[in-house]
Every structure is written in structure tokens, then in C-alpha cells.
Design a protein around this nucleic acid. Structure first.
Lengths: 104, 104
DNA sequence: CTATAATATTGAAATATCTAAATATATCGA
DNA sequence: TCGATATATTTAGATATTTCAATATTATAG
């Protein structure tokens, strides 16, 4: 597994803002429509819309349009993909027997 | 598991910059000293130092001082902690049987 | 078709982040 | 102690992000 430098930031930017983490927290209790989130979060509507775009771009959240309402939910597949990317980090190659990188 | 809104961004900011992902990529082949990273990455020394601080603050990387050299390596514990945080997202509560949030 | 309601987009200000040069600190060897 | 080397911190400019008001778009009801 090789980490792609361009795509990894797009995925994890979702988790780099306090408000987006709060939104994800809400979504853990199931699919929510934007109006619901707007009630609970005390942010402007355009701000919510911006954050939902970032979340959807990351793949961690899925948006479903139903009439004039947008319903958002956590994407299991997206979370799984992110887990794989993160796990790749922990997957360190076999240590090259104490080879020193600098003269001592 | 409950996601803490303040701490989660600190952890995942590590993965939100292309250069930091490249650094993590390098560290996958084992512990590296700063001078090594500096050679490979084509960025200023102060820039590297800044990124290493962000990485260490996230807990994903551990720094070890040896004389005048700093050695950096991926922290298995840190990656594990991040995995737990991320997994909490996928752990969605039992869906409340299609309860609609908006009038239709 | 028109009015209304939900969401998206645009524009602009405030704030944060990235970058590098200059400087500071720490360690080692002479 | 002095000079050289590795890394950290400070400062400042460039860029990106967050936020909200205003406006645009889309869908539904009448």
C-alpha cells in the first residue's frame, strides 16, 4: 500500500476542523438532513453547506438528495478507505538493522 | 467511544499537508534523522522543523534526540490511537427505523 | 407560472497555515 | 573556550481556510 500525497490530505481534511468533527459526531446517530444539523450546530447555513462539501469530498460522508432536502450520513466505505490509508502508515518496513544515517 | 472535537483535529492535521504525507512515507522505511529528510525533501530546514513539530504533536511521529541529531520514526501507538478515533466514526448507532427528520 | 422553502454558490473579511531567511540554541571536537 | 554543525525559533510574506451576508439555484405547493 502506497500513500498518495495528493489524495490523503483531501480525505483527512474532513477531520481537521472542530465543526466538522461535531457534524460527524451527530451523524454517528444516523442519517440527518441539513436542516437538522443547522438547528443543532449554531452556524450559518452557508457555513454548513461548505463543511458538508468538504466532508463529502473526503468520502467519509455521503449526501442523498430527496426533493429539496439533503440527507447526510457516514459512509462506511469511506471510513474503511481512510482506515486503510492510515493503517498503511503503521505498516513500517522491516527495520534495517540499526544502520546509522549520520556519522557519530 | 466519543470523538473529542478539540483533539481530533490535532491528530489528523498531520495528514493534511502534502509534505507531511511525504515525510511519513519516508519514515515507513524506518527511523530517519532530520538531515536525511532534509536531503530528500527539497524544503528549507526551518520548514522541515515546523512540519516535524506538527507530526510530533499529532502523536503519529516520535522524535529521539541523539547528540546533535534528531531521529524521527512513526509511533505505532500514535497510529493505533488515530485508528481508534477513526474507527469510532464507522461505528454508527443502530439506525432508528427510517424516522424522517423533515416533513415530506 | 409564481411564491416559498431548502440548499448551494459567491464575495469579502478574519484567521490560520505554509514557507523561507535570519537568528538562536545545543552539542561536539579541537 | 572557540568554531563548526544540527536543529529550533522568530519574523514576515504568500496562500489557504473559515465564516457569514447576499445572492443564485432547485424543488415543491398553490
Amino acid at each position: 500500500m502506497t500513500l498518495e500525497e495528493k489524495t490523503v490530505p483531501v480525505v483527512f481534511k474532513a477531520l481537521c476542523d472542530e465543526n466538522r468533527v461535531r457534524i460527524l459526531q451527530y451523524l454517528r446517530s444516523g442519517e440527518k438532513c441539513a436542516c437538522m444539523l443547522l438547528e443543532d450546530l449554531d452556524i450559518a447555513q452557508s457555513t454548513l453547506s461548505h463543511h458538508m462539501r468538504v466532508l463529502c469530498d473526503s468520502g467519509l460522508v455521503r449526501g442523498r438528495k430527496e426533493g429539496k432536502w439533503m440527507h447526510y450520513s457516514i459512509s462506511q466505505e469511506g471510513v474503511q478507505r481512510a482506515m486503510v490509508l492510515l493503517a498503511a502508515l503503521g505498516d513500517v518496513e522491516t527495520e534495517e538493522a540499526g544502520k546509522p544515517c549520520c556519522e557519530r
